[in-house]
Amino acid sequence: MPIEIVTADITHLRTDAIVNAANPGLLGGGGVDGAIHRAAGPALLQACRALPEIAPGVRCPTGEARLTPGFALPARWVIHTVGPVWYGGTRDEAPLLERCHRNALQLLRAQRLHTIAFPAISCGIYGYPAAQAAAVAVATLRDELAGNDDIEVTLCCFSEAMRAAFQHALNAA
């Protein structure tokens, strides 16, 4: 079960799919979400707008995932997932973050894809502490990939500090 950690811009990776740390409306935003929308081009926003709202302004609830083409990205697909906002660990943040990773892999498998890159979901403006998010991500991915050598996961970190947190979690697992 290959898990690789890189420091890079996720919008430059050539994988079957990249994961977007999105907001519930899926209409773009800041951080990795904004970078993916800018790199993919306006067709991504159109594809996201075409996804049905399940509540006013919500196309993807926290912990769930949605799939769109990658358009101008090197990745063929974008898997949008909404991570939890950090409230000190008191509002089921860890199980919700787990579900983000599991549901993204479920969509990858459903499309019969083999390579995926994840950003540090919820570690930006949503405030999830990097070390704790990394531990949840690595444990979940290892569990999901056990006995499944046909999927390759890249954990894509935008900074060296974030890469170090994820590398520590991978080494400790």
Rank of each mutant, 00 (worst) to 15 (best):
P2W: 02
I5E: 00
T7H: 12
T7F: 11
I10Q: 04
I10R: 05
H12N: 11
D16G: 00
I18A: 03
N20H: 04
L26I: 10
L27N: 11
G29N: 06
V32Q: 01
H37M: 05
H37Q: 03
R38A: 15
A39R: 09
A40H: 02
A47T: 01
I54P: 00
A55D: 11
P56I: 09
C60L: 03
T62N: 10
T62I: 15
R66Q: 13
L67V: 15
G70N: 04
P74T: 08
A75M: 10
W77G: 13
V78G: 02
H80E: 09
G83H: 08
V85P: 02
G89T: 05
E93L: 04
A94Q: 10
L96V: 11
L97K: 02
R102P: 01
A104V: 12
A104K: 10
L108F: 01
R112M: 05
R112C: 09
I116Y: 05
A117C: 00
F118N: 04
G124D: 06
I125Y: 13
Y126Q: 07
G127S: 05
Y128D: 04
P129N: 03
A130Y: 08
T140M: 03
T140I: 08
D143M: 11
L145I: 08
A146Y: 04
G147N: 09
V153Q: 01
L155M: 13
C157V: 03
F158A: 01
M162W: 00
A164D: 11
F166P: 01
Q167G: 06
A169M: 07
L170A: 11
N171L: 15
